[in-house]
């Protein structure tokens, strides 16, 4: 990672921790901000957070690994999470799953080589009356059919082209 980027990240972390109260309770919202802006929480970020909160970086690591929506490893720009719980299952999630795998060319738990997509299972999304349901990042798609999968992926690709240059979404390694 380049030094100016690191400095920027450290500056942001200080800002977020202060904004969320400046103590240990600020940890989760701060990690969520890092995840949102940078796509994952790097070792460097963990170290900075730990220093600011005067805790051991392992504490930070322990928290990150507990939560499904926080990652230490890099994931795709679009994280597609298909609900696998009972009502979406009964509504036909398996066929949607297969189509997602086919159209993206990856299996669940994998990311595409171009870094655009990650495919994951989610537990109950609370959209049981509109299944099969999935999230693309925080956006909701309901009544998904195998046919609609292509459109969903295409709309992501279009958004990706338009947004790549937005500074706050740049991934830093």
């Amino acid at each position: 990672m380049l030094t100016p980027e690191r400095d920027q990240l450290a500056e942001n972390i200080t800002k977020w921790i202060d904004q969320y109260g400046g103590n240990r309770s600020a940890l989760l919202p701060t990690l969520q901000e890092i995840q949102k802006r940078h796509g994952r929480v790097t070792e460097y970020a963990m170290q900075v957070v730990a220093d600011k909160l005067s805790i051991h970086p392992v504490e930070v690591y322990g928290v990150i690994t507990f939560y499904a929506f926080l990652d230490t490893k890099y994931k795709g720009r679009f994280i597609i999470r298909l609900c696998r719980t009972i009502s979406c299952d009964m509504a036909g999630k398996s066929r949607v799953a297969r189509q997602l795998e086919n159209d993206l060319g990856i299996k669940f738990g994998e990311s595409t080589a171009d870094g655009r997509f990650t495919l994951e299972w989610a537990n109950c999304l609370g959209l049981c009356d509109h299944g099969p349901a999935l999230l693309v990042n925080s956006q909701v798609f309901t009544h998904v059919t195998p046919e609609k999968v292509h459109d969903i992926i295409e709309s992501c690709r279009k958004a990706f082209g338009a947004h790549t240059l937005q500074k706050e979404e740049v991934h830093i390694a």
Binding site: I86, N123, C124, G126, L127, C128, D129
Partner: peptide, 8 residues
């Protein structure tokens, strides 16, 4: 935190 399967 509504996470119980089937609750929305």
């Amino acid at each position: 935190d509504e996470g119980e399967p089937g609750t929305f």
